[in-house]
Design a protein around this nucleic acid. Structure first.
Lengths: 195, 195
DNA sequence: CAGTTTTTGGAACGAGCGGTACAAAAAGCC
DNA sequence: GGCTTTTTGTACCGCTCGTTCCAAAAACTG
């Protein structure tokens, strides 16, 4: 009963995510969020409570999308290491004209700025990282079954290394590395993995 | 002539660096910087011009220190891969009681938050990264001469991968990974590199 | 249509931000 | 020891921050 909302909270969260992703937690001020979400301040606070809670919701959305993107990317058909190569290759192409924009992964940014000091965010991030580990681990298992993987030592450790490389690549791209350098990094990664 | 400064600008920059390192660019407010540097606001602005310029000076100091730490770390005596192992191992021990505190590398934080949008900072960071690449490259050359390295493909690419892993490890540590996980990552790295 | 309930826009809040103005204090100069 | 030059402490500037308040508007309920 009463007046119904004039906007869709779900798309509002998506819009907020875009703002936080582009501008970071501090950069996305209340005024900026109003603008991006297309709603007034009252609606914002009435619906989401506080900036922190909105950020948590936006982060949750981001991680959900990331999960989908990564999992579908790594479950693609074909030889496992080819799949991995094209997955990393896609990352190195961010920022090219007409492609995905180059912006820092929200996980990386959150860890770097210590937003993870908040227990709620820390929990979300830790879970997402564990799932990244799992996705890489599945792919490594595939590669091992194919016999294309030089696997010595723990596959789980290797999977964690790939997660680390994935996030490191993100930093590298945002550090102004050229496409050539970025691709030399993914090339080196695959050279090491091949049997 | 005139009244001499009551403080040493050099140590003041170091103090500022500590503040920026701990709290980030935005977190280190003028009041905080006053406190950490032990000087008043007038002195701060008269000496350093603006917060941006002070940040640039602090970053420069940070990178100089980092350079020294990394280069002396990677030039240590002994088998090259052992040196690399203990270098990474040291990173994974940050945050242990009584040791180095766990705080995000200023390069990583700067890239993640886009402080590198400022050309002055970007230049500093790019140069520092190139020097990290070189330091790893030197170590890889050593390993190759020893015959302990499984080197296929470009050594420069491999060196860049190590820089990337170094920064990725930093993210991983700040993401709340356990010491066990962190060490499994360095273990995996060395397993891949060994001939 | 009257009454209740909820949302909405906009003004306003106190606090903190980076930066400046200014006068008092301190040291060098002759 | 006066005079100049520089630094220092403090108060203050305009602005933006996240958040709250409140009255008007809108839609559901009987």
């Amino acid at each position: 009963m009463g007046r119904p909302r004039q906007f869709d909270p779900d798309t509002a969260v998506t819009d907020a995510m875009e703002a936080f992703w582009d501008l970071g937690y501090e950069g996305a001020s209340a005024a900026v969020l109003e603008e991006h979400m297309g709603i007034g301040r009252s609606s914002l606070y009435a619906t989401f409570g506080s900036k922190d809670e909105l950020y948590a919701a936006a982060m949750d959305r981001y991680l959900e999308d990331l999960r989908k993107r990564v999992i579908t990317g790594l479950r693609a058909d074909g030889p496992a290491l080819d799949v991995l190569q094209s997955f990393f290759h896609r990352v190195t192409r961010r920022g090219e004209p007409g492609g995905e924009p180059l912006r820092c992964c929200m996980i990386v940014r959150s860890c770097a700025t210590g937003t993870t000091a908040s227990p709620a965010i820390a929990r979300l991030v830790e879970r997402a990282i564990a799932e990244l580990d799992d996705a890489f681990h599945d792919l490594l298992l595939r590669a091992r079954h194919e016999g294309t993987l030089r696997a010595r030592g723990s596959l789980r450790g290797l999977a964690r290394l790939l997660t680390t490389t994935f996030q490191g690549l993100n930093i590298a791209a945002n550090a102004g590395r050229s496409r050539r350098e970025l691709q030399s990094i993914t090339r080196a990664t695959l050279d090491l993995l091949e049997a």
